[in-house]
Write a protein that binds this DNA or RNA. Structure first.
Lengths: 206, 206
DNA sequence: CCAAAATTTAAACAATTGTTTAATTTTTCC
DNA sequence: GGAAAAATTAAACAATTGTTTAAATTTTGG
């Protein structure tokens, strides 16, 4: 019989916190149990194993990671507006979840998850029609001749990397975390202008 | 008395390979010993501990990581030429060491090294006079009004991230490693044009 | 050639790992 | 209220962790 749901949720929250900051290999199940204020047997009682628990956390993180895109893409804005909104929304989102890009890329890099990205993550994005909108804009000369894959890489580079590079950048320039956060704000506007200037042709043919 | 140097070097090479791909937490000293074809006691005989060995590998990696900049900066090219050359050189370099950006950022992110970046890494860069060259170009209206820190972040984002995102991008677009490597080549040219277009003002005042 | 030094090895160390067992407590529900 | 179910705990499990010890081997230098 079902009981207070909060224990399972508390474990998930603790696991998310610990996995996100230390990584799968960087923590023990006892670290997570301590964060919960309980013991290790309870973790396996609810989630069977460290790996299973991680899979769960990772899938949730990946979902969050891609979620912010979908809302923007499925609106009925122009392509340029969508790009600008995407950059805005992603920066806002990652300001609240700054560890997410590193967690996702690191976990994938070290094959901490074997499964390919489930289609339920990707289909919603494809279903927004964003790819068709882009191809159309390209055909009409509004947008530079560039593949959607390269556009994606451009956007991800400029949106994800700043949040992954905090420690490196702070050390590199000898600045504080506060300095860096200031830079980040400015950087959002720079990236917006940088990318829209590049992608969108100012005087379209048609 | 000194003897065949190759053992120490073989251990370092093996450690570099294993640490780079699996990370500090993701491997055991026995993984490294197996890669060497020896046993764990030998590792500690030469390097005292896993941590000490890692510090050594990390410092070497950081040195490589920053090295490619210095050669370009200390040449006597124009700023625009330097930026273009930097992007070219970094892409070439990371094509041969694609795991390096992830290794550096990941290690810093998880505080696998406590020491701040030693000045012998940073001083050579400052000594090239690149910062002064940039400020001068800015004052003369050749370059957009943007801080050097934001420029650095732009460059690093667009040069490092592509190599860190291979797995994510492959899964996201459902493409092969060969497809991705093709994209990378195209991406280098895109990044070059993207950044120079943005930074350098086409019709300088002076 | 041979002792001393340096290198390499196998084995053991205590601590920590993920997981399981079995007992105990708490909740559920008639 | 009390038996059944669910939740929680402490303890133990074997395996793996980083490190050390001590013995064996190889190299060095007179």
């Amino acid at each position: 019989m079902k009981r207070d749901q909060s224990t399972e949720e508390k474990i998930k929250a603790a696991a998310k916190k610990v996995f996100m900051t230390k990584g799968f290999d960087g923590c023990s199940v006892r670290d997570i149990a301590k964060e919960v204020g309980s013991n290790v047997a309870l973790l396996n009682y609810y989630f069977r194993s460290k790996e299973k628990l991680f899979e769960l956390i990772f899938e949730g993180a990946m979902s969050d990671f891609l979620q912010s895109m979908i809302a923007v893409f499925s609106s009925d804005l122009t392509l340029k507006e969508k790009v600008e909104q995407l950059i805005d929304k992603e920066f806002s989102f990652f300001l609240e979840h700054p560890e997410l890009p590193m967690f996702i890329l690191q976990s994938l890099h070290q094959n901490k998850t074997d499964a390919p990205m489930p289609s339920h993550f990707l289909e919603p994005i494809a279903n927004t029609g964003i790819f068709e909108q882009f191809e159309k804009a390209k055909a009409q000369g509004e947008v530079r001749d560039i593949s959607i894959r390269n556009v994606t890489l451009l956007l991800m580079s400029n949106v994800h990397y700043p949040f992954m590079s905090k420690k490196l950048t702070m050390q590199f320039h000898g600045i504080t975390a506060e300095d860096f956060d200031e830079d980040l704000k400015k950087h959002k506007e720079i990236v917006k202008e940088l990318i829209t200037n590049y992608l969108f042709i100012s005087n379209p043919k048609a």
